[in-house]
């Protein structure tokens, strides 16, 4: 996969911080590029992406794991980057909103545009990454799984209808709730 410039992390800039605890070395892959750098033990992945790698498309909404704005894919799984330590990501693969589109928008991004699934755009990267996890799943997703995933992100602007339509356009939803055993 070729990485467009916007998707590639900036060469990490390590600030001259007087951090009181140990720094850790991390080697990880971010949007297909290898990143090798030192991080403070306590640095959150969200801050690492935004402040050190200039990937500011990942947004920080609550730092309590509740809003989902900071969702990224870690080894293909949607996770809260605000509840993930950068130091714990060594050897792992991170994908952010910047890593989705090539020249044209990624199908999930396109679906958001098609269905007016965003207004201010702040929660959007988190939603797109959450839905991308399901988009990339080979087997169909049950109705219940889709709702589980969508309820993991909060939007304050749209009233959700466009987001739900975008998700249904870009995720293969099982017609019958066969996998639904709740």
């Amino acid at each position: 996969m070729t990485i467009k410039k916007a998707a590639a992390p900036r060469s990490p800039v390590t600030p001259r911080l007087v951090e009181p605890t140990a720094w850790r070395h991390v080697d990880l892959e971010v949007n297909g590029s290898t990143v090798s750098t030192e991080v403070e033990s306590r640095l959150l992945l969200s801050d690492f992406l935004r402040e050190r790698l200039a990937l500011t498309g990942t947004h920080v909404g609550c730092e309590q794991g509740a809003c989902g704005a900071c969702t990224v894919l870690l080894d293909g799984r949607a996770v809260r980057s605000c509840l993930t330590l950068a130091a714990a990501c060594t050897g792992r693969e991170v994908r952010t909103i910047e890593g989705l589109a090539e020249d044209s928008l990624h199908p999930v991004q396109q679906a958001f545009h098609d269905h007016h699934g965003l207004q201010c755009g702040f929660c959007t990267p988190g939603f797109v990454m959450s839905i991308t996890e399901l988009h990339e799943r080979e087997e169909p997703v049950s109705e219940d799984e889709l709702m589980d995933q969508l309820c993991g992100n909060i939007c304050r602007c749209t009233g959700y209808r466009g987001i739900e339509r975008a998700a249904r356009q870009s995720v293969r939803v099982a017609t019958e709730g066969g996998a639904d055993d709740e």
Binding site: G65, G68, T71, L74, R77, A78, V79, R80, L83, T84, S130, E133, E145, D148, Q149, C151, G152, N153, E182
Partner: peptide, 12 residues
Amino acid sequence: IRHIGHPQIRNS
């Protein structure tokens, strides 16, 4: 497990 948080939480 299906009642725990959201998939984004259960993934970690």
